[in-house]
Nucleic acid binder design. Structure first.
Length: 423
RNA sequence: GGCGCAUUCGUCUAGUGGCCUAGGACACCGCCCUCUCACGGCGGCGGCACGGGUUCGAAUCCCGUAUGCGCCUCCA
């Protein structure tokens, strides 16, 4: 039987990072095994369904690069099949009616166990299993009934899901057994928590994949980071391409305990990926990101600025604050005083061509004449030109800004300059 | 409350009885590089939840306790 895994979210909104991680593990496993990765929408709870959710989930999977085999399937499309099976179980005496609903008769004695691919052997006593509602009184099947049914119908060989489903597994196993279906293998992966050890929620920061995308994380870094949450390759390898992850991913290296989502580490990884991008591609990504976020800054200028920031920012989201001064006049973040700024304006006026190297020569010469250390001389200039004490390289920045604009910023002091908001 | 699962530096993790005076990474601190920031280099801080066993020897095996999380819904 060919390996077949599936990701089965319910359509209640944007894809949460926990769901994304589960999807990723399923995808990595399927690809590693040369099998299929399917997407199934578990929409039997019609009351919680959100209209846009299915599109959002698909868009997110596609951004993450998790390609789905076959079309999306919907649990409610199996409504009739589920009802048929329920009726059959009723006829066979394996289920009974209860207030208009149909309940499955769980065994009262013995145990139900399975060899979990992550947890090892898990065993529960049957007397704890409650008689499960198969069909609600309105005829809609419940999750614990259709989900295993669909797994069987779709030939799913491996059910990889969060550990919050561990206690559902014996129930589903019983259902599968009652209908005479083959049993898939189960792998329950650890949950994701926030910094306080509690379930990851909005108050911990970004929680949906879309949030991270909007903050300027790139998909390769995000996927790499997610893979490292609950899985590791060895004792030191952390940066891995999608291909390497597929090649190396195995369930036996998935851990058993919940992981805390570490935003700092994600940011660090994102910086590594950003810096490793070829310059042109970096500019492409940056531009695409800015457009997505609604910035209409001039493309040529963005491309000119891109190389100046690539080494310096860890997320694309830092760009507007870090390099916004290229696109609009800014108010100095602090007081610009002293003789340096006017002197710099004067020194720069005769620099030709107005390029980083001669600019640097001129400014270093100026510093020397004034008896100032380089940093003492350059900080006021930086502040006047970029509006901040932290910026891309000063000489390169001046070059990109051009002589006219540079001199204007150095000469106008803090007044006069009418910054046009280019956003 | 019942049942289940888990428990290695603050965080992600390596570790499957001797290689562990517990390794790596992020974060943090210090130094170096340096026009700021970032990168990079060097160094530092910091952990096997606790208590009993088993064994010549335990982070690794067993039991108990504690803590956390999950499920116990005609939610998924």
């Amino acid at each position: 039987m060919p390996t077949r895994a599936r990701f089965a979210p319910s359509p209640t909104g944007y894809l949460h990072v926990g769901g994304a991680r589960t999807a990723l593990f399923n995808w990595l496993f399927a690809r590693h095994e040369g099998g299929a990765f399917r997407l199934r929408i578990e929409n039997t709870d019609t009351s919680r369904e959100v209209a846009e959710a299915v599109d959002q989930i698909q868009a997110t999977l596609s951004w993450l690069g998790l390609d789905v085999d076959g079309g999306v399937t919907f649990q409610m499309d199996r409504l009739e099949h589920a009802q048929e099976v329920a009726r059959r179980l009723l006829d066979e005496g394996q289920a009974y009616e209860d207030d208009g609903a149909i309940r499955f008769r769980m065994p009262d004695e013995g145990t139900t166990a399975w060899d979990d691919l992550v947890l090892g052997r898990v065993e529960t006593t049957n007397e704890k299993l409650e008689d499960l509602v198969l069909l609600r009184s309105d005829g809609r099947p419940t999750y614990n009934f259709v989900s295993p049914l669909e797994d069987a119908l779709d030939g799913i060989t491996h059910v990889i899901r969060g550990q919050d489903h561990v206690s559902n597994t014996p129930k589903q196993l019983r259902i599968l057994e009652a209908v005479g279906a083959e049993l898939p293998a189960y792998a329950h992966v650890p949950l994701l928590n926030g910094a306080d050890g509690r379930k990851l929620s909005k108050r911990h920061g970004a929680v949906t994949v879309e949030d991270f995308r909007a903050q300027g994380y790139i998909s390769e870094a995000f996927v790499n980071f997610l893979a490292l949450l609950g899985w590791s390759y060895d004792d030191h390898t952390e940066v891995m391409s999608r291909e390497e992850l597929v090649d190396r991913f195995t369930l036996d290296r998935v851990g058993k305990s919940a992981a805390v989502f570490d935003y700092d580490k994600l940011t660090h990884l994102n910086g590594i990926y950003l810096r490793a991008l070829p310059p042109e591609e970096y500019a492409d990504r940056l531009l695409a990101y800015l457009r997505e976020q609604g910035y209409e800054w001039d493309e040529t200028l963005v491309r000119q600025v891109a190389p100046l920031v690539q080494e310096k920012i860890a997320t694309l989201g830092e760009f507007p604050a870090f390099a916004g001064f290229f696109f609009a006049r800014v108010e100095p973040d602090g007081t610009v005083d002293g003789e340096v700024v006017p002197a710099a304006a004067e020194a720069l006026a005769s620099v030709e061509p107005f390029e980083a190297e001669p600019i640097e020569t001129a400014l270093r010469g100026l510093a020397e004449r004034l008896g100032l250390k380089p940093r003492e001389a350059f900080q006021p200039i930086r502040l006047a030109v970029t509006g901040s004490k932290v910026s891309p390289g000063l000489f390169e920045s001046l070059e990109v800004l051009g002589k006219e604009e540079s001199l204007a910023r150095l000469g106008s002091g803090r007044g006069g300059a009418s910054g046009s908001s280019a956003r």
